[in-house]
Nucleic acid binder design. Sequence first.
DNA 1: GCGTTGACCGAACGACCGTGCTATTTTAGA
DNA 2: TCTAAAATAGCACGGTCGTTCGGTCAACGC
Lengths: 198, 198
Amino acid sequence: MGKGEITRQQILDHAVALASKVGLDGLTIGGLADDLKMSKSGLYAHFQSKEALQLKTLEEGAAKFIETVVKPAIKAPRGEPRLRALFENWCQWPKQSSLQGGCLFVQAAAEFDDFVGPVKDRLVALQKDWLDVLVGAARIAVNEGYFKTDADVEQYAYELYGIMLMYHHSARLLGDPKAEQRARIAFEALLNSYRPDQ
Amino acid sequence: MGKGEITRQQILDHAVALASKVGLDGLTIGGLADDLKMSKSGLYAHFQSKEALQLKTLEEGAAKFIETVVKPAIKAPRGEPRLRALFENWCQWPKQSSLQGGCLFVQAAAEFDDFVGPVKDRLVALQKDWLDVLVGAARIAVNEGYFKTDADVEQYAYELYGIMLMYHHSARLLGDPKAEQRARIAFEALLNSYRPDQ
DNA sequence: GCGTTGACCGAACGACCGTGCTATTTTAGA
DNA sequence: TCTAAAATAGCACGGTCGTTCGGTCAACGC
């Protein structure tokens, strides 16, 4: 791996962290360069446009997310244990050191919902992929008997996502120390409501 | 009311609509002035800074929200009917003509969670006020027997807010046509989980 | 009806943005 | 070690931002 690849990786690492604070659109080449003690043009040369930087940053964030949230959860047993692992890893995700600013995707989601362009398209695709993972895990829970047979697995993913959005909202904007605890309570209630009767 | 007050009101009306698209921070004096066929400086003269414009816009949005969501719901009977009215009005709120861009507060929440300053402070205060309204309505539902006596009313508000955040996220970013329907299903499930046993 | 006040505009400012161009330094292979 | 290539820096551009200032025009009380 040449030197270019290394610095390029350092840039993207920091870009993910910075974008989780200020958003993908709030990312500025100059600010990023200052943080990394590089020149604007030196950094810029690694990407050919800001849009490319945004896309690569998004991709880098998605890779990190899969690595820390999705992949470890797949090792958990199918069904409810895996649902719990997904939830737990998801809760921990915004806390990791490289994301002091909360979740990059939540941040980006609000910024881009009125944009058009490849960055939004990619963001939407990633969000749908993630929802599909949640849906798939819930479907397994149905097949394994943890959820009732007529459970609406997409509704499950929807409600779970809502809990995580409120967790983020409550913890980061409102600074509520109980945010995570409340998310856990909500998750338990969600599981309960999808279990077989009796 | 002098002429100044009238145009000032027109500015704020449009500012709320625009900010619901691009965010409070994404608001630009020039863009606002263009839309209203005014000069930048002419518009600027009504406020003494962009921060003041943001604060007034936030206040205007809050006033509209109270007028269209909170006040009509108070007329509904205490307890579950009022909870339903609050939910229903809340669902309709981002659709009204002056808010083509979705909910101003959801938009602003993501932008300002890492900022410091009076705009964020006011935004947080408004959000807490709104949560308090939801908590109060839930407490009434407890007292009127719609909810079980040991119901955690703050948890109720938390989970309800999560549903609305996901509604917004799903409808605006992902463009899911089922977003509102799913929000309704989630709300019914939420009500059910708080009802007295049997 | 006139004069004062307030509303509004045009132009310009400094700062920062993304983006190119050219030069310089650093890397890596023979 | 020498050299070709890659990586980085310096500088300048056009554009947009918030903000300021001086001037113009219409509104409104006497």
